[in-house]
Design a protein around this nucleic acid. Structure first.
Lengths: 334, 334
DNA sequence: TTGAAAGCGCTAACAG
DNA sequence: CTGTTAGCGCTTTCAA
């Protein structure tokens, strides 16, 4: 059996209270006793049980991460950066794949609470607003990454999606494109990006063709399907703004089926700047989110909240950066 | 405050023992009492604390997953499938990114044990054999996915790496290639794949050129660097077997720098059949591992072990399947 | 500076 | 069928 605090106490010939104090560095302990206890602890390979300690009202040092789907490299990287920072701060991450299913979201949250996690991080695309509101009302520590829910008093770290969408569109316009399609997923962040897209068109005095807004499943397949639609219409777009790299890859694959080449026949820009952006050919111009930084910041916000450092809602908005590669070009004039 | 078993007992006018029994469906409780208790439980929104229950010797229903790096889509998918099955079986997954650092491995394991996880799953590329041996000796439940350590008495789920390597090489040979390079990472699975590669060469009566075995960092960059080496030698290989898709992508990128085209100038086959294989152009022929199945199986093995169903080492070996796409071709004869 | 004891929320004999 | 009680391993007063 694993040694308990009693074993240590017995071996060191002190009380368990004393052992507890040296573990937690509380109270006043003579150097002599402290040393004796420490020696015994590592002779026995003693490790305090976090479960027992949590039962007395202390932290579990565990945080839940709700994330739609690790199959999207963007989310995988989010998970990685959150875990990294969590580990640095002494917190473990329990992974919860929601598949954007608000039912699963609710179940996971209930489960996490049963396990007494110290806090929860919601990554992009959380749907069950009701549950969230409840958590916030109970002052349960949560933080949101890559999605801001303005109506919700929860800390959040996002990239300026509106600006990202604006810049992408502006760039395409500056190349001479006039018919620009946008491929979006059904998520808040996409809506913001589309808002930027609209504004850029307006600012350039271009008309918006509502047909050019394609809402897709957030998968390669989803992008591909909608792209097939798009490619059949007359006067089709000459440039595409994909709200994430997965969709961009889908569009590229569909276009290839039609014998079209990037960027000669069609320009495209993605979002998230994932590993996919450098893998495809031509490499994909994409909008980078500072994932490492974002992961660090949500984690920090959350831990501060757990520690009760503040009770105001804090929003961190970072700047998206467009990474230029070879997937755009001026349109061919017919 | 969250309601406790005492609150429920008081409201329902029964003892906590009775409440406990209805929670766990143990003992014999009259339907009437059961109903009354259940009603109170959900009126109060009561959820038993897993922490408290774990302290009494029951499970934590939590499992640790040690995985090198989610930035590799293969690992991300492993994580996803493990989490899926875990969730189905009522277990949460705590994510631990080891970066292949045997130090971190040891730390994570210690931490997981402090948290009293019920078991641990090790994904590919675990380095710290010493710790493992210790876990096994203590009969701590562990299971290994995508890596078998023959000397270790731990359950494992793998793909037949040897066979995978053999088939890839055999295919390239059948196309007429004679100079075939292999790009490997420094991992057990790669060694097996190389063994298959060697055997296939031997069986075909081809010489093995040891220079053609490139060991790389398991990243796109790693593959790219080694590929640059390879491309400068005279009588360079006409085909490449990359032991994972990441390396394959790296090789493709390097080759492109040299103005080479796939599959006309160079054939290539990857491994893992990740999202990258379909994203690159031309699409990459790659060896698929049945990830979904593998995740399910390790989880099942582990849970069985946790439940003490067996104490023999069990090995599940699944068949790799080569997915043919457009990245190979007979070599050009000069 | 140290220790005795109560209690965290729950389970599991054991009695009734 | 239901309740009393003694832990699980640890923290935290409160006395000594």
């Amino acid at each position: 059996m694993k040694p308990t605090i009693y074993d240590v106490a017995r071996e060191a010939e002190v009380s368990i209270a004393t052992v507890s104090k040296v573990i937690n560095n509380t109270g006043r302990i003579s150097d002599k006793t402290r040393k004796k206890v420490m020696d015994v602890m590592d002779r026995l390979g003693y490790r305090p049980s976090i479960v027992a300690s949590a039962l007395t009202g202390k932290r579990t040092y565990t945080i839940g991460l709700l994330i739609p789907d690790l199959a999207n490299p963007f989310f995988a990287e989010i998970a990685r950066s959150v875990e990294n920072r969590g580990h640095e701060l002494g917190f473990s991450i329990v992974l919860c794949s929601t598949d954007n299913d608000s039912n699963k979201e609710a179940k996971y949250i209930a489960l996490l609470r049963q396990k007494s996690v110290d806090g929860i991080i919601l990554a992009a695309g959380f749907n069950n607003d009701e549950i969230l509101k409840q958590l916030v009302d109970e002052k349960f520590p949560i933080a949101v990454i890559s999605q801001d829910i303005p109506s919700l008093a929860a800390d959040s770290v996002t990239v300026d999606d509106y600006l990202g969408g604006y810049k992408v569109t502006e760039h395409l316009i500056s190349l001479g494109h006039k018919r620009i399609a946008v491929f979006a997923e059904n998520a808040r962040s996409s809506k913001e990006r589309i808002r930027g897209y609209r504004q850029a068109l307006t600012d350039a005095g271009l008309d918006l063709d509502e047909r050019f807004i394609y809402v897709c499943d957030s998968t390669i397949e989803g992008g591909k399907q909608q792209a097939r639609e798009m490619l059949t219409i007359t006067e089709r777009p000459t440039a595409i703004f994909a709200c994430n790299d997965l969709l961009a890859v889908g569009v590229m694959q569909a276009a290839r089926e039609y014998g079209l080449t990037f960027p000669d026949d069609l320009s495209i820009i993605g979002f998230d700047n994932t590993i996919l952006a450098t893998s495809v050919n031509p490499p994909l111009t994409s909008v980078a989110q500072p994932i490492e930084e974002m992961g660090r910041q949500v984690m920090d916000l959350l831990v501060q909240r757990i520690e009760g450092a503040t009770n105001m809602k804090r929003r961190v908005v970072l700047l998206p950066e467009m990474i230029y590669r070879g997937s755009t070009k001026p349109p061919v004039i017919h």
